[in-house]
Amino acid sequence: MKFVAFERAKQGTGASRRLRITGKTPGIVYGGEGQPQLIEIDHNALWHALKKEAFHSSILEMELAGATTKVLLRDVQYHPFRQLVQHVDFQRVDARTRMTVKVPLHFKGEEESTAVKLDHNLVNHVMNELEVSCLPADLPEFIEVDLSGLTKNATVHVNDIKLPKGVKFVSHGKINPVVVSAVPPLVAEEPAAGAEGAPAEGAAAPAAKADAKAPAKKK
Score class of each variant (00 low, 15 high):
Val4Asp: 01
Val4Tyr: 01
Ala5Tyr: 02
Lys10Tyr: 06
Gln11Met: 12
Thr13Ala: 09
Arg17His: 09
Arg18Thr: 00
Arg18Cys: 01
Thr22Gln: 13
Gly23Tyr: 13
Tyr30His: 10
Glu33His: 13
Gln37Leu: 14
Ile41Val: 14
Asp42Cys: 01
Asp42Lys: 05
Leu46Asn: 06
Leu46Val: 01
Trp47Cys: 02
Trp47Asn: 09
Trp47Glu: 12
Lys51Asp: 04
Ala54Gly: 05
Phe55Asn: 00
Phe55Lys: 00
Ser57His: 12
Ile59Glu: 03
Glu61Asn: 13
Met62Lys: 08
Glu63Gln: 11
Leu64Glu: 03
Leu64Phe: 06
Ala65Gly: 00
Gly66Lys: 07
Gly66Cys: 07
Gly66His: 11
Thr68Arg: 08
Arg74His: 08
Asp75Tyr: 02
Val76Cys: 07
Val76Phe: 13
Tyr78Gly: 00
Pro80Asp: 12
Leu84Gln: 14
Leu84Phe: 01
Val85Ile: 14
Val85His: 06
Val88Glu: 05
Gln91Arg: 02
Arg92Pro: 09
Arg92Asn: 12
Thr97Tyr: 09
Arg98Lys: 15
Met99Ser: 10
Met99Lys: 11
Thr100Ala: 06
Glu110Met: 07
Ser113Phe: 05
Lys117Tyr: 06
Leu118Ala: 05
Asp119Gln: 10
Asp119Pro: 02
His120Arg: 14
Asn121Tyr: 00
Leu122Thr: 05
His125Leu: 14
Asn128Thr: 12
Asn128Gly: 08
Leu130Phe: 05
Ala137Met: 14
Asp138Ile: 03
Ile143Ala: 10
Ser148Ile: 10
Ser148Cys: 03
Lys152Pro: 01
Thr155Tyr: 00
Thr155Ile: 03
Ile161Ser: 07
Lys162Thr: 15
Leu163Phe: 15
Lys165Gly: 13
Phe169Cys: 10
Gly173Phe: 04
Gly173Gln: 09
Pro177Gly: 04
Pro177Val: 11
Ser181Gln: 03
Ser181Pro: 02
Val183Tyr: 00
Leu186Pro: 00
Leu186Tyr: 00
Ala188Tyr: 01
Pro191Arg: 06
Pro191Leu: 14
Ala193Ser: 11
Ala195Gly: 03
Ala204Phe: 05
Pro206Asn: 06
Lys209Pro: 02
Ala210Cys: 00
Ala210Ile: 08
Ala210Tyr: 09
Asp211Pro: 03
Ala212Thr: 14
Lys213Thr: 12
Ala216Met: 15
Lys218Phe: 12
Lys219Phe: 10
